[in-house]
Amino acid sequence: MQQDIIFIKGLAVNAVIGVFDWEKEIKQPLVFDIDLYTDLKQASESDNLQDTVCYKTVSDDVIALTEASRFDLIESLAEQVCEHVLSTQPGVKALKLTLNKPDAVPAAQSVGLNIYRQR
């Protein structure tokens, strides 16, 4: 199977997330990078949106899910996002998600995680 990638880089969302009491009272910035592993051959031949994964739909879903969430850990949010994408986007065979929490550690540009999930 061909492994092509549709990517979403720097998707910025504000969310209530964190383990400390003060974190549960404010929205903090999160930044997602998402690689969607799929087969783009049919879409490249048909030039039809129905034959690919719509990155706007995925982006809108990630934003909505993140804004509505109230997790303590970014690990939990990342897993929820992956599960949602895999369950709603049949063309996505796997995804790699990078989740940055840029304001979490003042001395660091950003902290975060990378996870990879597949069907």
Rank of each mutant, 00 (worst) to 15 (best):
E67D: 04
A78W: 00
G10Y: 00
V13G: 03
D33K: 05
I8D: 02
S59G: 09
F32T: 04
I5G: 03
V16K: 11
V19N: 06
T66C: 00
T88P: 06
T66Q: 05
C82M: 08
G91D: 10
V53L: 08
V53S: 05
V13I: 09
D47A: 12
K56E: 13
D61W: 09
L86W: 12
L113W: 05
D35M: 08
P106D: 12
I17A: 04
S110N: 13
D51Q: 07
A43T: 05
L95M: 12
V62M: 02
F32S: 03
K56V: 14
I63R: 10
Q3P: 00
D72F: 12
Q28C: 07
K56H: 12
E67W: 07
L86N: 10
D35K: 11
P102A: 09
E25H: 11
S59L: 05
A104H: 01
F7Y: 15
A108E: 13
I63Q: 08
K96F: 00
Q28L: 10
K41S: 15
R70D: 08
V81M: 04
E83C: 11
T52N: 06
G10T: 07
Q28G: 01
L40F: 11
E23A: 06
A108C: 15
S110A: 15
A68N: 14
T66L: 00
L30S: 02
K93W: 03
E23R: 05
T66N: 03
E83Y: 07
N48K: 14
K41F: 11
Y55V: 07
Q28E: 03
T52K: 05
F7K: 11
S46E: 02
D4Y: 10
D51S: 09
V62S: 02
K27R: 15
S69I: 02
Y55L: 08
A94R: 05
A104P: 03
S110T: 15
V53R: 04
F71T: 05
L99R: 02
T38N: 05
V58R: 03
V62H: 01
V53N: 01
T57N: 13
